[in-house]
């Protein structure tokens, strides 16, 4: 086990139980006098914390894989259009008024699956990266336009407000059902991304050199579509759009690795889990009138300045 992995695991081991105690109602483990503490922990905070770990790990590893695949430190899992397509599915279920229970995540997963299938069709025989990325950006653009259309043609003000609120992304009011939806899909996706690790390492030498090292570009592309699709699709299905995790996390951990994309995957998954866990705790404890700060907003507030900082560093040639 490498040092960054050990440090991140230790931090998670401390942060996970500690996060369960924080919220509107603080629970002191030494003086358990809070009414309904057991219900709050088991039914509200534990599934929410588990979901933060699952979604964060998925988005973190997907971000690391995307940056490796596109050989670009500014790549983000949203680039392939899977997140907007999943969100479009969810928006459609809200628009149709069938978002209860399993329906919304199911619609979102169908949206993600459609984007994955479309990407697979467009990818073609050669497995070229540029065409593929452009196709993903077009899918993202189309899904975004259709979402805006759905909002502008919302059947009622209530549906519109529901759609807009959902799109902001949150882990509030999520339960074990969401954990059971997201965990297996994310695990499958992360395993696909790990299987792509050596291919991503080879690709850091450029397309021709990578193929000369035995890389099969079509296999790598299929693993990336499956891995990013499953992790991002699952995360949007249960938590809405949570941006910037996939972009930021690989940058945090890269300096502590040997810079190979494969050595970034596990630390990025762990750091993503930690970041989302802490950000969700921040959302819970910030005193805001009118409810909690939405997780998606909190991460964008953190992420956008980080992105600007990164661009400035790149301009100075230090990134």
């Amino acid at each position: 086990m490498t040092r960054p992995v050990a440090i991140l695991l230790a931090l998670l081991a401390v942060a996970f139980p500690a996060s369960l105690l924080a919220g509107k109602v603080w629970i002191d483990p030494l003086h358990p006098v809070v009414a309904n503490a057991g219900v709050i922990l088991m039914q509200l905070r534990l599934p929410r914390a588990c979901l933060a770990l699952v979604v964060g790990a998925g988005l973190g590893s997907a971000g690391a894989a995307m940056q490796g695949y596109l050989r670009n430190p500014l790549a983000d899992p949203g680039l392939f259009g899977i997140a907007p397509s999943a969100a479009l599915g969810a928006v459609l279920s809200l628009w149709l008024g069938v978002a209860a229970g399993w329906a919304l995540p199911l619609f979102a997963l169908i949206g993600a699956g459609s984007a994955m299938a479309l990407l697979g069709l467009i990818a073609g025989r050669q497995g070229g990266v540029a065409l593929f990325t452009l196709a993903g950006m077009m899918i993202a653009s189309l899904a975004g336009a259709l979402m805006s259309l759905a909002i502008s043609l919302a059947p009622s003000p209530f549906a519109m407000s529901e759609i807009v609120t959902w799109l902001m992304g949150a882990l509030a009011d999520r339960g074990w059902r969401e954990v059971w939806i997201a965990a297996p899909l994310t695990l499958g996706g992360v395993l696909c991304l790990f299987a792509a690790g050596r291919g991503l390492d080879a690709l850091s030498l450029g397309d021709m050199a990578a193929r000369s090292l035995g890389l099969d570009p079509r296999r790598l592309q299929a693993l990336i579509i499956a891995g990013v699709g499953l992790t991002v699709g699952a995360s949007v299905a249960v938590a809405g759009i949570i941006g910037f995790v996939g972009l930021m996390v690989p940058h945090f951990v890269r300096p502590f690795t040997d810079r190979r994309p494969s050595s970034l995957l596990l630390p990025s998954a762990l750091a993503g889990a930690l970041l989302l866990l802490l950000a969700d705790v921040l959302c819970r404890v910030l005193p805001l009138t009118g409810g909690e700060l939405r997780l998606g907003i909190a991460l964008s507030l953190l992420g956008a300045p980080f992105f600007l900082h990164l661009l400035l560093r790149m301009r100075e040639g230090r990134a």
Binding site: G206, A209, L213, G214, R259
Partner: peptide, 26 residues
């Protein structure tokens, strides 16, 4: 067959040893 392209690139700022180790991927 080992192949060295005309303009070899390295996308990430790895050390020489890590770069050379990538040659072992096959």
């Amino acid at each position: 067959i080992g192949y060295l392209p005309q303009a070899p690139e390295v996308a990430w700022d790895m050390t020489v040893e890590v770069l050379v180790r990538l040659g072992r991927l096959p």
